[in-house]
Design a protein around this nucleic acid. Structure first.
Lengths: 116, 116
DNA sequence: CGATGTCGTTACGCTAGCGTATCGTTGCAC
DNA sequence: GTGCAACGATACGCTAGCGTAACGACATCG
């Protein structure tokens, strides 16, 4: 089942998902935060602050701040790398996995609704 | 060509697009701002502050502030409704259309790349 | 050892955005 | 006209996030 989108369908999908997310997500994650979250959960570990900063093309304090916020919300976890104690490893959480699972369901649902 | 996504593909698409957007968009629109922009461009006019607020489930000052910012960036325009001068009509701009066109292309491109 | 470099974090001043409450303007019904 | 409702914008105090520059902790290499 190929992912073939017209320009109109692509924007329509983004529209529907964004709208639903704004309406029903109290968290209101920024695009940067969401990108970090997806990176951590979809790309094999390890994930470091430095690595994430390079990947997103932002500075390190941006990552630290985002991890502060998302850590308080239980979406990610941080722990020292015992092999090199300068590093901090960003780890997944149950709540984070649940959050992205719901987002995935939302995208699929809205994508299906586009063709009906 | 149906829009059929697996859960993994859906999140992968969101991941790729978010990443690209964070890396190459100096604007860094919030999810709310993007939702407003898509609403204005994909739903037939007229668009009022009140209407957008109800549609997104947020308060009116949220919309006013978002329109301030996006107005400065040339993504949307505001003008008084001459038929009922209490209303403000949110209008599209060339720059805004261009911005969403590029976003659409990005989504399509990343969607296609998912299946290759 | 000490010197140097690399981590992630923090400090600083600043801007943007938030919610609540209120404001001035405009429409409308009486 | 006068009262009242609806519209969008503004004021207020506050939080979150920003970029730049520094910091302490740790590793590495001579």
């Amino acid at each position: 089942m190929p992912v073939e989108l017209t320009a109109s369908q692509a924007l329509g999908l983004w529209h529907a998902v964004s709208l639903e997310q704004v309406r029903h997500d109290g968290r209101d994650l920024s695009l940067r935060q969401l990108a970090i979250l997806l990176e951590v959960y979809l790309v094999p570990p390890p994930h470091t602050v430095r690595g994430l900063a390079e990947r997103l093309g932002v500075t390190k304090p941006v990552i630290t701040r985002a991890l502060d916020t998302m850590g308080e919300q239980g979406l990610v976890d941080r722990s020292r790398d015992e092999r090199d104690r300068r590093n901090v490893l960003v780890k997944r959480t149950v709540d984070g996995a649940l959050y992205l699972e719901k987002l995935g369901d939302l995208i699929i649902g809205r994508g299906r609704a586009l063709t009906s």
